[in-house]
């Protein structure tokens, strides 16, 4: 479904991703862990098509298409979704109106009719229940004054509304209380199917108890330096990243 080959990318001349290789198949859940500043959000942003980032080398294929050739909106239309580590606040834009526009734009891209008011409301209700989000929150300006947890929940709500094929969650668990982590995980698990895949960026093994990954990757200094089964997450939790850093001393020098 997603195939990343030797991806190099950076911003303003600074090299951040230095040859990423990753293969995600339908139905799989992959987790990416790694120290602060290692490039996790950069990878997520590059996949979602953030224009500021420059891809200098490599290929990304998504559902048979050259992903890097597509605009961010087309990527969403193709079924890619990014839950932002830091969701943006937009004063003056109602959350509901934004989500309705988003859903209908994606439908349009896929050649579907826009949802009428009734079907949209029905869908909203259903997904609101799924992620336990308040109606009053959705009538407010997009993320404006939302608490950290509310913003994250709103991301998962949008994901649920858009029903993507590949969801990339960038530290959606950070800043969530224990109940919220469970709720968010339920939302993600509800999306899981043999056709869909999830890429989780997280610092904490706890999330992986709820959303059990098929693979765990360690991103370090712009490269995936280690991959393994879910047990790798326990090892990282226990030993920290030092053992990886010592395994890759050359990398340190590159920095």
């Amino acid at each position: 479904m997603l195939s990343i080959e030797n991806l190099h990318a950076g911003i303003e001349g600074k090299k951040i991703l230095k040859g990423i290789n990753l293969e995600i198949k339908p139905g799989e859940v992959h987790a990416i862990m790694g120290p602060n500043g290692s490039g996790k959000s950069t990878l997520a942003s590059v996949l979602a098509g953030r224009p500021e980032y420059e891809v200098t080398q490599g290929k990304v294929e998504f559902l048979g298409k050259d992903l890097l050739e597509l605009s961010p909106e087309k990527r969403a239309g193709e079924g890619l979704f990014l839950a932002f580590q830091y969701p943006i606040e937009i004063a003056g834009l109602s959350t509901t109106h934004f989500i309705k526009t988003s859903v209908n734009e994606v439908r349009k891209y896929r050649g579907q009719q826009p949802l009428d008011a009734v079907s949209f409301l029905k869908m909203m209700k259903e997904k609101m229940a799924l992620v336990n989000i308040e109606k009053t929150l959705l009538s407010r300006s997009l993320n404006e004054g939302f608490s950290g947890g509310e913003k994250k929940r709103n991301e998962i709500f949008q994901m649920a509304m858009l029903e993507p094929r590949l969801a990339i969650l960038d530290e959606t668990d950070s800043g969530l209380d224990i109940d919220a982590i469970r709720i968010v995980s339920n939302g993600v698990n509800a999306l899981r199917s043999k056709d869909n895949a999830v890429l989780l960026v997280t610092h904490y093994q706890r999330l992986l108890d709820y959303i059990v990954p098929d693979f765990v990757h360690v991103l370090y200094n712009g490269q995936i330096v280690k991959s393994g089964p879910k047990e790798l997450a326990y090892e990282l939790e226990e030993r920290g990243y030092d053992f990886i850093k010592s395994e890759f001393p050359a990398m340190e020098e590159l920095n």
């Binding site: 909106e73 932002f84 969701p87 937009i90 994606v106 858009l162």
Partner: peptide, 11 residues
């Protein structure tokens, strides 16, 4: 803001 909206499929 532009990127956020576009990442949600909005032209």
């Amino acid at each position: 803001g532009m990127f956020y909206l576009r990442s949600r499929g909005i032209r």
